[in-house]
Design a protein around this nucleic acid. Structure first.
Lengths: 229, 229
DNA sequence: GTATGCGATTTTGTATGCAAACCTGCACAT
DNA sequence: ATGTGCAGGTTTGCATACAAAATCGCATAC
């Protein structure tokens, strides 16, 4: 299955497409697997085994792992196999808190800075979410919900802050599967989104930030409940 | 000068000290050089040259560079030499804004969570800074000022948020040299610190956060003035 | 039954070789 | 003067080889 050595046909005749290295593609693949849950926290990332699986040598595998280590998705100690990053309850709580605050910042700035086009897109996704709630499709809700939040990250018009927030969400993802299983949560989540959207469209940063804080808080609570703590 | 191959004598008889790999030590050295300004933004990091300089092979050099790429201090494109990360004015402004907000968060949480010991340490550094202001030593002020802020990052008792803030500060450092050249700035900076310290000791998160925002704002302004924008 | 020590195996860390991509400088055409 | 094309050298990307560290299993001692 791993089609990493494909010669990566250049789409279109744009010469500006930088051909990715094997290490870069490996990093993407592994990061995706970790975030999506295919590689669970604690799973060992053995270099030789990954090299065999992807039919490359250990060198690009090592580089990909180093990249992931620096981004926090993988932890490594000298002379020991790297493993998908684990987290204690305390660390996890810290990351949740940080994500909540980052999202509040993004929401606040979005209320100040979103362009008309971005506002339209926000409304579009919000409307699509409502249809998904009515259809009762938790998986699809999860996907669109991520898009909803991502639009708000982008709307802050601060690339660095956007990146921090996206990375934090990715770092938490391996620990927060199965959040929207209850259908009641979907409806509640959408109602909270409504408040956020209103505040942003009304250009009220403080209200947007507060609404986001309440929203994330309730998600976090749901997560804590799910974990049984 | 590069003493990287030293056999790293184990201090004490603790067997728990994880011996660092060459790549890890290289990363530290390079990151330090970049943050301290010895390697300016845009400077090319040629693998073979670094390998010669540090008397190691290209492999650990490559790994160190990959680590730095993921942390944002270095930028790399396939088949091209890695260079110390540059930043446009817009990106820099974004990072400054993010740092300001992160520091405000830390200050707010510190007001809620700092232990008695941490409060004592905060007061100690604050007092030491006053002496440095009177002595008029910008370099020493810069060092102690970093410690002052670092204590507040740690005081938030959220390791992840602390790390984000430290990394953001490091990422900005290469672009913010020579901030405290004017002596008037030192006195003003110390006065602003006073407000922050008071708020934290009084356990007033909102006041602490606001005081920090005002403080960083004035630093940023000083920076902007220095850059001529 | 638990703990300890030792050797074989496994796995990582580093060095090196080679091919492909990139850059330089120069000749040449426009 | 500006642009184009093409050697030649340089630098990176990947594969492989070997050394050093850690792990595992098993025998032995308590």
């Amino acid at each position: 299955m791993p089609k990493l050595h494909e010669t990566a046909e250049v789409e279109g005749d744009r010469p500006a497409v930088a051909v990715k290295t094997l290490a870069a593609r490996l990093r993407e693949q592994l990061a995706d697997d970790i975030v999506r849950g295919a590689l669970a926290p604690g799973v060992s990332l053995e270099e030789a085994e990954l090299a065999r699986r992807f039919e490359v040598s250990r060198t690009p595998v090592r580089e990909a792992i180093r990249l992931l280590v620096a981004s926090g998705l993988v932890e490594a100690r000298p002379h020991r196999s790297a493993v998908v990053a684990r987290a204690t309850e305390v660390e996890l709580a810290g990351m949740f808190e940080a994500l909540r605050e980052l999202e509040c910042l993004c929401a606040g700035f979005s209320a100040e800075r979103m362009t008309a086009a971005e506002c339209t897109e926000l409304k579009r996704i919000h409307a699509a979410l409502l249809r998904v709630v009515r259809a009762g499709d938790p998986q699809r809700y999860h996907e669109l919900n991520e898009q909803f939040h991502s639009i708000i990250y982008a709307g802050c018009h601060n690339d660095y802050l956007e990146r921090l927030t996206l990375e934090t969400r990715a770092r938490i993802a391996p620990f927060s599967r199965a959040q929207f299983r209850a259908l009641g949560r979907l409806a509640r989540s959408h109602a909270e989104h409504e408040t956020i959207v209103r505040a942003i469209l009304d250009r009220k940063p403080d209200r947007a930030s507060a609404a986001m804080k309440a929203h994330i808080g309730s998600v976090h609570d749901a997560y804590a409940t799910y974990r049984g703590s």
